[in-house]
C-alpha cells in the first residue's frame, strides 16, 4: 500500500517537475517573442497616471498653446516643428472639408471661407496623445522613447539614434526630428514643469481653459470630472493606440 503510494507520488513528482522545467524552458525560449504582444496588453497604470482632456467647444483658436509650447521647450521656430498646434476645420455646405493650420495657428487664423458657404467650423488643438500602447514606443529599436510610470511618453535625447521610425509610427503626426540635435522630439507634457508643481505651458496659457489634465486613476481628478460630464472621444480610435487625449465634441471629420 505504502509502496504504491510512494510510486504514485514519485511519478507525480517527476511529472510535475518535468512540466515545470519544460514550461520554464519553453517560456524562456519564447520571451524574445514577447515583443509581438506589445499592443495586445491592457494598459496597466498604477498610481498617478496622466490623461488629457480638450474641450473643442471652448477652443477659440488663439494659438497661445502652440506658441507657449515653442517658447517653453525651445522648439525650433520654423513652421515644420511642432509639439503642439491648432487646426481649423471648416466643413462647407457642399460637404467638402477644409483643414488649415498656418504656422500651427501661432499667428492666428484668417477665415478663408465666406460665412454663407460654411456648414460648420471649429478649432482642434493637437498634441501628443500620450498613448498607453504607444506605437512610437513600440517601434523604437533602442528604447530611447518610453512611457514613464505616470503615463507620459518621453524621448531620451541622449540615447535616440535618430532613425525616424517613431515619426513614421505616430498616427497623429506629433513627432519630428530636431534639425539641430538629429534626435526625435515630442511633447513631454512639460514634465519639467509638473515636477515643480506647475501646469504644462499649453494648459497654463489657454485663455479659455479648453484643456485640462489630471490623474486618470484618481476618481476625483479634473480629468475624470471632465470625462464624466462630457461625451468624449479619442482621435483614430480604430488604431487602438490607448490614446489618453480625450476630446469633447469631437467631430468625425477630425483625423
Amino acid at each position: 500500500m505504502t509502496q504504491t503510494r510512494s510510486k504514485v507520488t514519485r511519478r507525480n513528482f517527476f511529472k510535475a517537475g518535468s512540466i515545470i522545467v519544460g514550461g520554464i524552458a519553453v517560456a524562456s525560449a519564447l520571451t524574445p517573442f514577447d515583443g509581438v504582444l506589445f499592443a495586445t496588453e491592457r494598459p496597466k497604470g498604477k498610481g498617478e497616471w496622466y490623461g488629457i482632456g480638450i474641450d473643442i467647444n471652448k477652443c477659440i483658436g488663439c494659438g497661445k498653446c502652440a506658441n507657449a509650447c515653442k517658447l517653453e521647450n525651445n522648439v525650433p521656430k520654423d513652421p515644420f516643428y511642432f509639439r503642439s498646434w491648432v487646426e481649423q476645420y471648416t466643413i462647407k455646405n457642399d460637404g467638402t472639408i477644409l483643414v488649415e493650420s498656418p504656422n500651427g495657428g501661432i499667428d492666428g487664423f484668417k477665415q478663408s471661407v465666406p460665412d454663407a458657404d460654411i456648414f460648420k467650423s471649429f478649432f482642434v488643438p493637437k498634441m501628443c496623445n500620450h498613448c498607453a500602447k504607444s506605437p512610437c514606443v513600440q517601434v523604437c529599436p533602442v528604447g530611447a522613447t518610453f512611457e514613464t510610470p505616470e503615463g507620459i511618453v518621453l524621448v531620451d535625447e541622449n540615447y535616440c539614434i535618430g532613425c525616424r521610425y517613431c515619426v513614421q509610427a505616430c498616427p497623429y503626426g506629433c513627432r519630428f526630428i530636431n534639425p539641430e540635435k538629429g534626435t526625435a522630439e515630442k511633447c513631454t507634457l512639460c514634465i519639467h514643469r509638473l515636477e515643480k508643481g506647475k501646469n504644462p505651458a499649453c494648459f497654463e496659457m489657454c485663455p479659455t481653459e479648453a484643456r485640462i489634465y489630471g490623474d486618470l486613476n484618481d476618481p476625483d481628478s479634473k480629468i475624470n470630472y471632465f470625462l464624466k460630464n462630457h461625451t468624449c472621444m479619442v482621435i483614430k480610435p480604430n488604431l487602438n493606440t490607448g490614446s489618453k487625449l480625450f476630446y469633447n465634441a469631437l467631430s468625425p471629420e477630425v483625423r
Binding site: 517653453e72 521647450n73 530611447a144 531620451d156 541622449n158 513631454t188 506647475k198
Partner: peptide, 21 residues
C-alpha cells in the same frame, strides 16, 4: 523601470522653465 534609461526621466525633468505662471 522598463526598456529605457531610467535616468532619462530626471534628465527630462531638469529642462529650464520659461513661463512663471
Amino acid at each position: 523601470l522598463g526598456h529605457y534609461r531610467a535616468d532619462a526621466i530626471p534628465e527630462n525633468e531638469m529642462k529650464t522653465l520659461h513661463y512663471a505662471g
